[in-house]
Nucleic acid binder design. Structure first.
Lengths: 232, 232
DNA sequence: GCACTTTGTGTCAAAAGGACACTATATTGT
DNA sequence: ACAATATAGTGTCCTTTTGACACAAAGTGC
């Protein structure tokens, strides 16, 4: 494609993009897995991902989103790079590099599509130990989970696991599932009120007791990082 | 190399590994730049890096260290992944992906080697705006600087910019250069004493006033993250 | 010896989360 | 209708960690 340099002069690593997409359903943290259609590991479960299409993907972010949309029919509202993993033996085809993204989505926004097909499923993160997973993807998922937990201590990212309008109770519940421990409702409210990223709606919604206020993420805002972690 | 899959079936992105190696000298934060020997951008300054040697590098971490050692003659004591940057137009040869590392080293451990050659230099981070730098490397350096500043708020990473034995005064100075603001000596000492990663030696050293205690990083320890940031 | 410099400590104030009691307002069952 | 129960939200004090800053300690240089 150029005369600067012959791209086939050296042997290249195999380069792929994979994503760890989390959601919360049935009171548990789940990861999206897909059944592999191709060798290697054909037929076993692995992370959604694949090769960059260098003619149509402008960046690897687009690659990740494209692959996720193929599987879920929607693009997740939160996507960030996790880390790049590499090694001579992590793929039987040779030295490989995979750029792993981590993403969040509200279960409501995908579940109907997922349930209708049999090569995509949500897997409870706690049952992954017992499964056989392609490549080193089990390891990648573990890394992503730790990053999600860490970010939950100093940001409001779990909001992206909720629908557009949500209550403090729902957010508290999502955070507790991610962290695997309870947190103080008061602390959560203090943080919500001190950031400028959510809006308190006037609407209230029933939740088995006193009506709960609805909150919503302001549009176009970036996630704020607090200067202090919740107690780990 | 395999019959699973023909590696040349698709067009691949160009994959490289680059490093942003920081140090502190002359009261300023500096980045290592090298003069490019090959096209593109031959003759201009850029980050040390290059292609993975898939026959000898076991991971990309090794690639980064190998490239840094070629230029500085030593391996930096601190190395971590920064981020992967990609795009169809960041390299004139086509779609490219670069995995960027960020590294720290004590100036004392490299300066003699660097000064003797003319294709490697330390550049003051504040003068980089005015320079012409290969690819989007100026942008990568800016990202790395922000990460370094952020980590400095909640960890002791700046220790890796210091020699084996150092004083609180030296560490305070390095941190202040990185952050571009003064910090409280008391806060620094409190943090040093609350972590278990440094050892207070009995030796003292002259520093223009009262003798200063020497500290040293315990061997084999990992960097500890504090639960709270210093004030930004 | 005296001024100055850098190191190190003591102490109080400020900020933000944790704990937890208490109030408010729904739903549900009888 | 009313009590029991559940969830939402507030008020308040405690705890932890950092910021601020005065002060003491111990060198150097003239």
């Amino acid at each position: 494609m150029t005369d600067f340099y012959n791209i086939n002069e050296y042997k290249h690593p195999l380069f792929t993009v994979d994503s760890v997409l989390f959601t919360i359903t049935d009171g548990a943290l789940k990861v999206l897995l897909v059944k592999r259609a191709n060798s290697p590991f054909e037929g076993s479960w692995g992370l959604p991902g694949g090769f960059v299409d260098i003619d149509s993907d402008s960046t690897t972010d687009i690659t990740a989103l494209r692959k996720l949309k193929e599987k879920t029919n929607v693009e997740p509202p939160y996507l960030e790079q996790l880390q790049t993993f590499s090694g001579a033996h992590r793929d039987p085809r040779g030295f490989s590099v995979t750029l792993v993204y981590f993403a969040l989505i509200a279960a409501q926004n995908v579940s109907t599509h997922i349930k209708s097909i049999d090569d995509v499923q949500w897997v409870d993160i706690n049952t992954i130990q017992d499964l056989s997973i392609a490549f080193d993807h089990k390891h990648l998922i573990e890394h992503a989970k730790q990053r999600l937990q860490q970010k939950t201590l100093y940001s409001m990212v779990p909001i992206y696991c909720l629908p557009e309008y949500f209550t403090v109770g729902q957010l508290k519940s999502v955070i507790e599932i991610i962290l695997g421990k309870t947190i103080q409702r008061k602390s959560l409210i203090r943080r919500l009120e001190s950031t400028n990223i959510v809006e308190k709606s006037d609407e209230k919604v029933s939740s088995g007791g006193r009506l709960a206020h609805l909150y919503t993420l302001k549009s176009g805002v970036d996630i704020v990082n607090f200067e202090r972690n919740l107690s780990a």
